[in-house]
Amino acid sequence: MRGAEGEPPVVALDNAEIVYDRHFLAVQGVSLEAHRGEIVALLGPNGAGKSTILKMISGIGQTERGEVTRGSVSFEGDDVTNAKTTPMVDRGVTHILEGRRVFEDLTVEENLRCGLYRGGRRLRSKKSDYELAFEYFPQLEDLLDVNAGYTSGGEQQMLVIARALIHRPNLLLLDEPSLGLAPKLVEDIFETMREINKNEDITMIVADQNAKETLEIADHGYVLEGGQIELSGPADELVDREEIKEFYLGAGGDESQYSEVRHYKIRKRYN
């Protein structure tokens, strides 16, 4: 039993099936939970359904004609199956989309400014507007007047996390934060995510292909494959599983080279 006694999970998917365009089955029979204060890892190769799950939790999947056609999604005990994005944002869900979606022709400051509103109202806190962001990403302070499109990949990743942080979420969904970043930078950013999770009491679901780094900061992990959960468990146990080592951490090789992984092997062993 994870989470505090009697408290419903922040997010729970119960046997969820997710379909795009009414016909394309992307996720099938997935059940997972994220409890207050946890970091949950969603792992798996390209096309496994990681992003799809996040998109249906935040509701943004509906803009891509995604729909939960079976099972349910709940948030803090309430049924939110196929809820729209705006009410989910109002409930405290902030989604960092895959691919470092900074507003390119806005400056870094203007990007941060866009995080200042929630539910049509200006967020107020004791700290000054961006202080929270600078606490975790001091580099951004020097870039305030730079067009976000001209900052480096690492800076853009920091910016989208900072922008989401200013938005004061209860639940933060992070999609591929490690994408295309140098290993050292990935380590730093993941370490900062962990600090944010602990200090600001923000529950996180992190979808990433970098299993090693993600499991290092996560409490619990799910491994997806072809839209289904193949493996799940406490992060520290998952790291030690042979299959994970073999297929997702690479035998000492480059751990993000999924294209070379032969996925069917995993399915064969766990079905």
Binding site: S58, I60, T63, T85, T86, V89, D90, T94, H95, I96, L97, R101, V102, F103, E104, D105, L106, E110, N111, R113, C114, G115, Y117, R118, G119, G120, R163, A164, H167
Partner: peptide, 18 residues
């Protein structure tokens, strides 16, 4: 800023509550 943000990336603006 929000209008420009929404123009540059609708989805990214929507998940910020725009």
């Amino acid at each position: 800023s929000i209008l420009r943000a929404a123009a540059s990336d609708q989805q990214a603006a929507m998940v910020l509550g725009v």
